Computed example of a mutant assay.
Amino acid sequence: MERIILLCMVSICLSAVQAQKFLFNQKWGPAGYKEWRGVNEETAMDKIIKTNELKATQIIDGTTTLREGDIAVSSGRPPRICFARSCLWSKSVDGHVYIAYNLSPEYNEMDTMLIKTGMANIEQGTCVRFVPRTHQRDYIDIQPKSGCWSYLGARGGRQTVSLQIPNCVQVGVVSHEFMHTLGFVHEQSRLDRDNYVTIMWPNISRDRLRNFEKFRTDTLDLPYDYGSILHFGKYAYSQRGEPTVLPKDNSNIQLGQTSSLSHIDRLKINRLYNCDDMDD
């Protein structure tokens, strides 16, 4: 009897191991999931994809969906892309762009510190300043909802930025979402992107092809930025762990950022908000 019990226990353990291998296998994992070769190679967008896809956060609620993986779009409003200056936050007479925010009490002290570090990441070398909301009509409401996402640009009134605990409360992810809040789409969505990167369409999960659309946005006369915090990583939405975005001419170019804005990201902010006097 003891031998039978022992054999049953071994069988159960082996079954559990096999099940785990199945659940986390690259081939069968959710779209965009990949066993990364090293944590330092993950871009901010890689982390967002991993969180949003594993949580199945493509439909936020009955009225809001995500496009490009983390840009919230309300179905009650006409589909909208922020075409550069069409959805800017107001600029103060002192030359700064003040964005009022409300921070959920669900965030602990460490969460709050990381979110504020992400804010400081945006503020450094730019005219943007995040300020706690007092009376402002237009503000962002930062909440630990399901997934990492933001609306694009200023919408008027209260607008949610979702930073789920703990996956989205990382400096690079926070900075990435706030760039969307300021009005920027992903870098490889630029209309001229095919001059700089090759989209490997056969390697992309069939139901995520729309995340690689191009949009006619203002490039602000700035060069294509492979290192933008808003750039997809090389394996974004890969269905079998193969590259989906490859730089032209030099496949060794690093795409995206892990935790920092690029120099060009900062130039984008200052040019979009007419703070060119802060350009380096």
Score class of each variant (00 low, 15 high):
residue 206 R to D: 13
residue 213 E to G: 05
residue 215 F to E: 10
residue 245 V to L: 15
residue 205 S to Y: 05
residue 250 N to P: 07
residue 215 F to I: 12
residue 219 T to C: 03
residue 207 D to E: 13
residue 228 S to Q: 07
residue 205 S to F: 10
residue 245 V to E: 11
residue 232 F to W: 09
residue 229 I to E: 02
residue 208 R to E: 09
residue 237 Y to W: 15
residue 212 F to N: 10
residue 249 D to K: 15
residue 219 T to D: 13
residue 213 E to Y: 06
residue 226 Y to D: 11
residue 204 I to S: 08
residue 228 S to D: 06
residue 223 P to G: 10
residue 214 K to H: 08
residue 246 L to W: 01
residue 245 V to D: 08
residue 247 P to Y: 01
residue 235 Y to T: 05
residue 215 F to R: 04
residue 235 Y to Q: 03
residue 229 I to N: 02
residue 239 Q to Y: 04
residue 212 F to C: 10
residue 248 K to R: 15
residue 226 Y to S: 11
residue 248 K to H: 14
residue 228 S to M: 09
residue 232 F to E: 02
residue 223 P to E: 09
residue 248 K to M: 14
residue 248 K to C: 12
residue 240 R to I: 06
residue 242 E to Q: 13
residue 217 T to R: 00
residue 215 F to A: 06
residue 226 Y to W: 12
residue 230 L to A: 14
residue 205 S to C: 14
residue 228 S to H: 11
residue 246 L to E: 09
residue 246 L to D: 02
residue 217 T to H: 00
residue 227 G to H: 14
residue 235 Y to S: 03
residue 208 R to A: 11
residue 249 D to T: 15
residue 225 D to Y: 04
residue 226 Y to Q: 09
residue 236 A to C: 03
residue 249 D to L: 13
residue 209 L to G: 01
residue 241 G to T: 00
residue 225 D to W: 04
residue 226 Y to A: 09
residue 247 P to R: 04
residue 215 F to M: 12
residue 231 H to M: 13
residue 209 L to T: 14
residue 227 G to L: 07
residue 234 K to N: 06
residue 213 E to R: 13
residue 216 R to Q: 14
residue 233 G to H: 03
residue 231 H to T: 07
residue 242 E to P: 00
residue 247 P to D: 08
residue 223 P to F: 08
residue 212 F to G: 06
residue 241 G to Q: 01
residue 211 N to A: 15
residue 250 N to I: 08
residue 214 K to Q: 14
residue 206 R to V: 10
residue 218 D to W: 03
residue 215 F to S: 04
residue 219 T to F: 03
residue 228 S to A: 14
residue 216 R to F: 09
residue 209 L to Y: 04
residue 226 Y to H: 14
residue 224 Y to W: 10
residue 245 V to C: 08
residue 248 K to T: 13
residue 245 V to S: 07
residue 229 I to R: 02
residue 233 G to K: 00
residue 231 H to F: 01
residue 217 T to C: 02
residue 225 D to C: 09
residue 223 P to K: 06
residue 230 L to I: 11
residue 223 P to N: 11
residue 246 L to I: 14
residue 231 H to Y: 00
residue 241 G to F: 02
residue 210 R to L: 12
residue 232 F to D: 02
residue 219 T to I: 10
residue 204 I to R: 04
residue 206 R to S: 13
residue 209 L to R: 11
residue 219 T to M: 06
residue 239 Q to L: 05
residue 242 E to R: 08
residue 239 Q to V: 02
residue 240 R to N: 12
residue 214 K to Y: 09
residue 221 D to I: 07
residue 242 E to F: 09
residue 238 S to D: 01
residue 208 R to H: 13
residue 205 S to D: 15
residue 218 D to I: 05
residue 230 L to F: 08
residue 231 H to R: 00
residue 205 S to K: 05
residue 207 D to S: 12
residue 239 Q to A: 03
residue 204 I to E: 04
residue 228 S to P: 06
residue 229 I to G: 02
residue 211 N to I: 08
residue 239 Q to H: 10
residue 247 P to A: 14
residue 212 F to V: 13
residue 216 R to D: 14
residue 235 Y to W: 10
residue 225 D to E: 06
residue 206 R to W: 08
residue 204 I to A: 07
residue 228 S to G: 10
residue 244 T to C: 05
